[in-house]
Design a protein around this nucleic acid. Structure first.
Lengths: 129, 129, 129, 129
DNA sequence: GTGGTCTAGACCACG
DNA sequence: GTGGTCTAGACCACC
């Protein structure tokens, strides 16, 4: 079952929270290739936001080639296109660097940060991996 | 010497890039307690942005108690106030979670992510630690 | 033999793809006046779309007077009614203008575009003309 | 001077007409790299559509890397990234094929189509080329 | 001032 | 029923 955690008071815009929520579900295996998502209106009703906001999120995911939409039918999860190593690094490095700086800035040393990340990994993916 | 890397086409607002740049310099030891920053106008000229933007960034850093301003003298780096564990976690968890999801989404498993972070830590702080 | 190439992920709606596919077959001489088309259900099965979609396409072709339907017998290709010069221009100019803009936008000059079109003409109609 | 020709009763959605209009202006040299576009609100006022509609068009152009937006400053034309030959063909062939079929279907032979295109090219770009 | 996000609600196109 | 387009209008973030 698909579930979205949306916090309307989060700084991060709602449509991005939806995007990340879907990404999370896909990488956690809750959504698999070919599977149909709930309709835009359904999602909007469930998380109590405007359908346009959901639509915007889905549009982004379509552009990122994670979903396809078929008019009159709905939205579907695409097969993952494996990303190249270069792409991965380009996408992740800014996040990592920012995190490292923030961590240092809060007084964590390198090892403590790694431990903290490890514990979050377990929390997110549980025993599945 | 202090240097700012500003990418006006980065999604991240310029004033936040300045904030992070200063934080990075502080945690890397390029800026130490008591040291004077260049003036707002100087910085603005150097990185070619509106002085208001620089001002906003510095204001934020003052509010975060990383800098103090002394009228007529300039802006100075404060001594670090160690943050509580709770504060650290609150600040870092969203970043970590987002990173984990993005990494999984690019096909990295947990260990690969940790390795990547480790290598960035070395790159940023070099042999200093 | 008649064949449809349908790409469900094409931006262009399926029913229009069917319409164009039939037009192409007619102007290429694969379908000639008086010839019977496969039934709606057959076509739908072959290209794996909803029969309603096929029906809509055929309706359009009937309205354009390219096909006629005979109750209980099926759908047949009509004799061509030559279109007036005005009609031709009205139909083609938007397509041409769009193509010219797109070509310029991809760095082709006028002559290169004409050459490219020439080569596609040969490719589509081969030596038949 | 920049001018948009928008026909609200055109089948083609307004936001795409705006997109094409901007592309046309760029490839015609009316808009050059670095130049600032009128603000979203200005354009909306001029062509009498909702600012959101203009915004959507500009968003698309940003994604296509033809424009960049700088918050608080406006939208600017980017330097053209020359497209590869493969990309050009991929982008143009569907348009060309469709045009050829439509032309044949209206009774134009290959040469007549080429002549018609030639005359439109002159009309669009005038004596500039 | 600029662009970006979000809402509410209408209407259309598609399958 | 589905998703797509467009409007009107509010509010926010940025420079």
């Amino acid at each position: 079952m698909l579930s979205f955690e949306i916090h309307s008071q989060d700084g991060q815009p709602i449509y991005l929270q939806i995007v990340n929520s879907v990404k999370k579900s896909i990488s956690a295996g809750e959504l698999v290739a070919g599977q149909k998502l709930p309709s835009v209106r359904e999602i909007a009703r469930e998380i109590k936001v405007n359908p346009n906001t959901v639509h915007k999120a889905i549009n982004l995911l379509v552009e990122e080639r994670l979903l396809t939409t078929k008019r009159g039918l709905g939205c579907f999860v695409r097969k993952r296109r494996p990303s190249s190593i270069t792409e991965r690094l380009q996408a992740l490095e800014p996040l990592i660097d920012h995190l490292i700086v923030e961590a240092a800035h809060h007084g964590l040393n390198d090892l403590e940060l790694l431990k903290l990340i490890g514990s979050r990994q377990k929390r997110i993916y549980g025993l599945k991996r």
